[in-house]
């Protein structure tokens, strides 16, 4: 009990002693970075639509292009610099997800195609995929029962 109290006290003291990033500055940088990535996405979407490609196909081209750009920049050792400045602005868009798959692939390539890339490529993205699928499945079940109950959206 006494030990727990001391640990809590120390934790609190350390918290006061430890400098942290400026939240507002970080928010502004995230806004700029995330916004810039979305503008690039919008540009690709508009370009595709301008070429007469169907809306949903254009959207796929947009995602594909952004993923490609992110993987390329990860390979060129540039993407982490963008994230260092832009924080969540670079992490949240689809480009961040692509980076979280590409960077382990590069790092673990030396451990082999199977045990390196194969086993470890999803070390970071894995939880996102697992819980993403699980959440959409749960929502799907709820949606199914809502329809059964006659609720229309």
């Amino acid at each position: 009990m006494e030990k727990e109290k001391l640990e809590k006290e120390y934790e609190q003291y350390v918290k006061e002693k430890t400098p942290v990033h400026n939240v507002y500055m970080n928010m502004l940088k995230a806004f700029i970075t995330g916004g810039a990535i979305c503008v690039i996405g919008q540009f690709i979407l508009n370009y595709c639509k301008g070429k007469g490609i169907a809306e949903d196909i254009s959207a796929s081209w947009t995602s594909l292009s952004l993923v490609f750009l992110s993987v390329l920049l990860t390979g060129l050792n540039v993407y982490y610099k963008i994230a260092k400045w832009g924080g969540a602005g670079a992490l949240v868009p689809i480009t961040g997800f692509a980076n979280s798959v590409a960077s382990p692939a590069i790092e673990y390539k030396k451990e082999g195609q199977v045990f390196g890339i194969g086993c470890k490529i999803f070390t970071i993205a894995g939880p996102v995929i697992l819980y993403g699928i699980m959440t959409s499945w749960t929502l799907g079940v709820i949606y199914y029962f809502l329809i059964k109950a006659g609720v229309t959206l």
């Binding site: 430890t18 990033h21 260092k84 924080g87 980076n99 970071i124």
Partner: peptide
């Protein structure tokens, strides 16, 4: 980094500590 944290190319912000 590989042993204790993330792959080098992974986009993350390091805390000031």
């Amino acid at each position: 980094e590989k042993e204790f944290r993330f792959p080098l190319g992974y986009a993350t912000q390091r805390p000031l500590s």
